[in-house]
Design a protein around this nucleic acid. Sequence first.
DNA 1: GAGTGGTCTAGACCACAGG
DNA 2: CTGTGGTCTAGACCACTCG
Lengths: 232, 232
Amino acid sequence: MAVYRKIASQLRDEIMTQYSTGDLLPPESRLADRFSVNRHTVRRAIDELVQDGLVRRYQGLGCKIVQTPIDYALHDRAAFSHNLNQIGLGLETEIVRCEQVVLPAALAGQLDLALGVRVHELRTRRLVEGDPVCLIRHYLFGLPDAALDAFSGGSLHQFLRDEWSISLRRGTTRLRARMPTLDECTQLSISRGIPVMEVHTHNYCRDTGVLREYSIARSRSDLFEYSVEPKP
Amino acid sequence: MAVYRKIASQLRDEIMTQYSTGDLLPPESRLADRFSVNRHTVRRAIDELVQDGLVRRYQGLGCKIVQTPIDYALHDRAAFSHNLNQIGLGLETEIVRCEQVVLPAALAGQLDLALGVRVHELRTRRLVEGDPVCLIRHYLFGLPDAALDAFSGGSLHQFLRDEWSISLRRGTTRLRARMPTLDECTQLSISRGIPVMEVHTHNYCRDTGVLREYSIARSRSDLFEYSVEPKP
DNA sequence: GAGTGGTCTAGACCACAGG
DNA sequence: CTGTGGTCTAGACCACTCG
């Protein structure tokens, strides 16, 4: 087994057992000394941890442990075919609201963005044969003011690619389930006893790697299912 | 912008316009010459493409294009990075039951298998600091009778690889949410108001492509979250 | 054997955060 | 300013695929 894999594995163990969320990993140079390898080899090991979502790099600062409660990051590589992408095809899209807002503080903190940033907030509702199945909030960063004026439904990513030459690449996606709020019950036409699935997605500019969109989708669990397809 | 990003961007364009699925990219050394950079820089660029799922590396062979522009437009593919392995590290695994049974008829139909097939059924429970968070049923096909006798927790896939030289590859995975049964409430120590997430996974023999495992995981939605990382 | 990707080392300089 | 991560170069050797 490659050296960097062994180091990654050991660091994973130590993070799980000896670190808390927010702690900084020792600097790469120190780790390199400790494991008696080149700094590049340590970097390669940390790459693994970053990919698993265990740590996050901060230039000039260090590597911060970001562990969520239990991050069920999957080790095998497969492709994720996400219904949200195909939604423009089979589902109707209803634009609920589209405006520029100040990014909610909670999101700003989570995404590591400055407070007070103005963003486009697009809220949509997806329907299947008239039944609402999914509510989505898109937060879009760094767009011209009028960027979304012409958007009238369908695939948002397609629209951004065609109209603004912005090509987005999916980043980390998180899925969880919870009970709906009263508001969600109304908008999704469900009773209070039906759970909703909440999916958070990062989308980055394919060229520059900058975060351009963060979306939160809430869907009816009685009608909606997510599937992950293996890569060819 | 970093050199490797520019190169990645250019290669992406060329792949989209001038290559077909299955083609090989020029070797790293040639690309390095062409872009007048070090081979490592080209590698870093190709890393991006691999991460986007555009190409796949084959040691001794080259980099194969695995996605045409058409595929790409239809469904953006991101990867699913999963660590059942890591769960063996940070979480305790409790073996609830391990026996040979006749595959339940409902599953046989769904998986397109004959009725009456005998399989290994392994039931496990995962705990975090003593709290149960996840119940898993593994159905394993075509194993010797005593195959699992020595399994005592940790990663099942690791065990199969080490002890039986069976290397598994993730296939289709489906995720949904629902309310728990009474039995699940008991085993997961949750109240009836907490949804569970249910994840069904196909796993195939990496060599022969034969279905070897079907697993059903049910997890507490108040403690558990699934994450999907972009990756080949 | 020749050519490919995979890993590791060594050294250099840059960009950024913090005191 | 110092220390951190980010990038790039250069060279070496290995593991693998193919003819």
